[in-house]
Design a protein around this nucleic acid. Structure first.
Lengths: 325, 325
DNA sequence: CTGTTAGCGCCTTCAT
DNA sequence: ATGAAGGCGCTAACAG
C-alpha cells in the first residue's frame, strides 16, 4: 500500500540497506547512488515511517510538553522557548493541555510513555508526582517546569515564587502602601500558595496588613469580578495596594478599577501583576509585574532533558516597574 | 531492557498473543487469565510500545494540530474543542505552533506525515497548500481550519470572514459612523484580507469612507501602537468607527484610546473586534466583537477527519454587541 | 480459550 | 560501496 524502502530500492536499482544509508549516512554511499535514490524517493513520494524507525531506535524524537492551561500566554511562551531550543537538537515539541484536570494529566503521561517520548516536560497540577516519577523510572527523562522540585528522579526548572511574592509586596510597601490585598486562587495551586507566602512574609516583616482575596481561577474574568467586588466597598475599606497572582488577574482588576474612573491607578490603588506576559506592557496603564523568564524556562527544560535526572535549576524573578505601581 | 509482551507473557504463564488479547480484546480471554495478565503487567511495570503498535496498525492514534500562533487565545479555544471531541474517538491531539513561519509549517507537516498521524488539522499560513495536498494524497486526512477551502482533497472548516467583516462594518454604520477605519495586518493573511473585503463591500454599499490602517501583526501591542498613532491626528481627521481585524488588536486600540481619557468609546469612536475571545467581555469597556465559534470549529474539524475528504463546513459569524459599539 | 506464526518498515551489523 | 539477514514489539490470522 504505502511506499517503503524496498520500493524505493527497487526503483533505484539498489538494496534496501543502501537506501537507508543514502538517507542517514550519505557519506557512506557513492554520490551518484545517493542521487539515484533521491530521485526514486521523489518519484514515488516516499515518506519514512517514523513508527518503524522508533521501534528500531527504541525512542522517538519528540518531546511531550504538558501545560496547565494553553490559554495562558505564559505557557505559550514557555512552549516557544522549548521549541526553539529543541529544534537545535533535532527534536520536535508536541504540546498538550492538561486543562487543570488531573485525569487528563495522567492520561497524557501515559500517552507519552507509550510513545517512548525522548522526554516529557510538564507543569504539574499538584504535588502528587507519582505518575511522573514512574515515567522517569522507565527511562523517559522528565523535567518539571515552574515547580519547586524535591523529587530525586525528576529534574526541575523553576522560578522562586516565594521570592517573587516578596518582591512584589516589598515594592508596594516601598511605595507607601499600608493595606495590601493579595488576589489569587485557587489556593490549591502551588504557584498561588507560594506567591502568597512570599507576600505574607514581606507584609508581616513590615508590620503591614495583608488581606487575601480568593478567586476560583487565574483569568481576566475572575480578576475583573474581584475588582468589581472591591469597588463596592466603601472607600476607606479598600486596599491601597494589590498584588495579583498573575497578569491575567491583574488585567481584570485594572479593567474593573479604571473602568468607572472612580479609582486612579496607581494613585488610589497600586497594582502589581505576575508573569510579565507580553500584553502587560500594553494595558491601559502599563502593568508593573514580576517577570518570569518564560522562554528561558522552556529552553532550559529541553537542556535538562539531556542531562542526568535530578537537576534543579532555579531562576530569580524580577520586578518590572511600569506604571501601575 | 524494557519490559515487553513476552516478558509479561512469561510472568503470567501464557503466550504473547494472549497478553495482546487480554489487553485489546478482553472478552476473548478467560476472566481469570485476564486477571493474571493484569497482575503481571502491574508487577513488571509494562507499558505498551506505541511505535510497535503503530507499525502494525499502519496508523497512529494521534491527530496533529498546527496552529498559526499559540499565543492567540482563539487557537487555544480551537484546540480545546478539538481535544474534547477527539477524546470521544480515543484520539489524542498534539498541538504544534507554526509561529507564522512557512518553513516550520512545512516541517511540521513532514513530521506528522512520518508519524502517520491519523489526521492533521491546520490553520494554514498562506494559500499555498501543496504540502497539505501531498499529505492528503498519502492518505493522512487533512482538515484546514479557518480557511475557505477550494482544494478537493482537503476538507475545511471555516467561518465566513467576508461576511464577518461586512457585519462588523454594517454595525458601525448603523450606529451612525461615517469615517470607518480597518486596523489589521499583515495583509498577506487571508483572514485579514477577507475581513477587509467584507468591510469594504459594506462601506461602499453605504457610500461611507473606509480607511485602511496596516499593522505588522495581530497583537495587543500592535493595536496599541496603531491607537496611539490615531491619537496623534487632529480630532477632525480621526475615524469615528474602527473595525479591528481581531480582538487582540481591538484590546490594544481600546487601551490606547481610553488611556488618555481624551477619547470616549463608543461616543467619540466606536470599536468592533473579531473572534470574541473570552477576554473580550472583560475589557475596560466590554468589547463588541464578531464571534467565531472556536471550540465548535475544533470539534467539527475532528469529525471531518473521519469523513471523506473534500467536505467543507462553513459557519456564520455573529456580532456580539457589548459596549464599544 | 490459548498458542503459534508471520510480518508491519526500518536500520545495523557483517559480508562481500 | 553495496547487499543480505535479522530483529525491534506488537497483533491479526489461523490452528489447535
Amino acid at each position: 500500500m504505502t511506499v517503503n524502502v524496498k520500493d524505493v530500492a527497487a526503483a533505484a536499482g539498489v538494496s534496501a540497506g543502501t537506501v537507508s544509508n543514502a538517507l542517514n549516512h550519505p557519506e557512506r554511499v557513492a554520490p551518484e547512488t545517493v542521487e539515484r535514490v533521491r530521485r526514486a524517493i521523489r518519484d514515488l513520494g516516499y515518506v519514512r515511517n517514523d513508527a518503524a524507525r522508533q521501534l528500531r531506535a527504541g525512542r522517538s524524537r519528540s518531546v511531550g510538553l504538558i501545560v496547565l492551561d494553553m490559554r495562558n500566554p505564559f505557557y505559550a511562551d514557555v512552549a516557544r522557548g522549548a521549541d526553539a531550543r529543541a529544534e537545535q537538537d533535532g527534536l520536535s515539541v508536541l504540546v498538550s493541555d492538561s486543562a487543570r484536570d488531573g485525569e487528563r494529566e495522567r492520561r497524557l503521561v501515559d500517552l507519552f510513555a507509550e510513545q517512548r517520548a525522548s522526554g516529557v516536560i510538564a507543569t504539574p497540577l499538584t504535588g502528587d508526582l507519582e505518575h511522573f516519577e514512574r515515567l522517569a523510572e522507565r527511562g523517559v527523562p522528565v523535567v518539571l517546569v515552574d515547580h519547586e522540585g524535591d523529587s530525586d528522579g525528576l529534574s526541575t526548572v523553576s522560578v522562586d515564587d516565594r521570592k517573587g511574592g516578596r518582591l512584589a509586596t516589598e515594592h508596594l510597601l516601598a511605595r507607601g502602601c499600608t493595606r495590601i490585598a493579595f488576589v489569587g486562587g485557587p489556593s490549591g495551586l502551588r504557584q498561588v500558595r507560594d506567591r502568597f507566602e512570599g507576600a505574607r512574609a514581606a507584609a508581616s516583616a513590615a508590620g503591614a496588613a495583608l488581606e487575601r482575596v480568593e478567586i476560583d481561577d487565574l483569568t481576566v474574568r475572575h480578576g475583573r469580578a474581584a475588582g468589581e467586588a472591591l469597588l463596592r466597598r466603601p472607600t476607606g475599606r479598600r486596599p491601597d495596594g494589590i498584588f495579583a497572582a498573575n497578569d491575567l488577574v491583574a488585567v481584570g482588576l485594572l479593567q474593573a478599577l479604571t473602568m468607572t474612573g472612580g479609582v486612579r491607578v496607581p494613585d488610589d490603588v497600586a497594582l502589581v501583576g505576575y508573569d510579565d506576559i507580553d500584553f502587560a506592557a500594553s494595558t491601559v496603564v502599563p502593568l508593573t509585574s514580576v517577570r518570569q523568564p518564560a522562554e528561558l524556562l522552556g529552553a532550559t527544560a529541553i537542556e535538562l532533558l539531556a542531562q542526568s535526572p535530578g537537576e534543579h535549576v532555579r531562576f530569580e524573578p524580577q520586578v518590572v516597574v511600569r506604571a501601575t505601581a
